[in-house]
Design a protein around this nucleic acid. Structure first.
Lengths: 142, 142
DNA sequence: ATGGTGTCTATAGTGACTATAGGGTCAAGA
DNA sequence: TCTTGACCCTATAGTCACTATAGACACCAT
């Protein structure tokens, strides 16, 4: 509950963020510039800690910094409709699901290629290489 | 079967690659520099088409350009053991599977957060915003 | 006073492209 | 022959979300 000023290093350990990353967030306007000490050190207050935690939580969920920026802006407008927040989150979920589906397809194909490989052979007979090189007609090897 | 020279545009349409990307691959040494015409146009031969197809196929499977470079180098050594190729592919599959697992966790969390949201509310009552903002104690809202 | 750690700014690098500026080349049509 | 438009050339800078480096200054304990 105390609101004693924190150094950037304190903030970094408290949030699991690197010092350089915090400075980067400030530079791009994601985290407000804090007060400075006599020696020009950044002196963070509790609200900075809170906001950085919000940012990191969003990032951990895969939101882009631009989305985080929007979410920050929206969440300060207490009276406004929740629809925009909902839209951003739903869109992000859809994108995440698409990405998963893409990766599942890749993994399946990789497993298929790897499954045919008997390690210990030689490049000339390698099923993996064969699967990657296009045939003379440009079609993919089965 | 003809080995008539192709322009960079021909190569681009034949492989579904953008012209700038082909030039980029050349610049980073992934695709050999082709002969030039009198007017300084790149003149590609069939081997370039084959190699670019190989590259794009690897990229479509999610290999990094550096991995593609290794796979290219390895696959030209016909007599050598297939073990390195196998290792690269297996590692890539493992990474892909890890990435899928990560995204699954994110998606699950997003669905959980979104599921509690009744759209039409107001930011102050928004479950999404609430889930993202840290409580005063820094712990996450359920 | 000194040493070690932490902090400051500014700049450049990462991966895999993408975009832009400012030109040159080529083939077809008038 | 001239012009139009599509294509091609190089070089440079921008993207995202950091990360790394250099060189200087601040703070604290001994």
């Amino acid at each position: 509950m105390t609101d004693a000023a924190m150094t950037i290093g304190d903030l970094a350990t408290a949030t699991g963020t690197k010092v350089v990353t915090i400075r980067y967030y400030e530079k791009i306007g994601l985290l407000p510039a804090p007060a400075r000490t006599a020696g020009n050190y950044r002196a963070y207050a509790h609200r900075h800690l809170r906001q950085l935690r919000f940012i990191r939580r969003c990032r951990a969920l895969g939101f882009t910094l631009d989305e985080v920026r929007q979410l920050l802006r929206l969440s300060s407008q207490e009276g406004k409709s929740c629809a925009d927040v909902d839209r951003i989150a739903a869109l992000h979920l859809a994108e995440t699901e698409d990405k998963i589906a893409d990766l599942e397809r890749l993994a399946a194909r990789l497993r298929q290629i790897l499954g045919r490989c008997q390690a210990g052979g030689v490049i000339a007979d390698c099923r993996i290489v064969e699967a990657l090189w296009p045939g003379e007609d440009g079609r993919e090897a089965s």
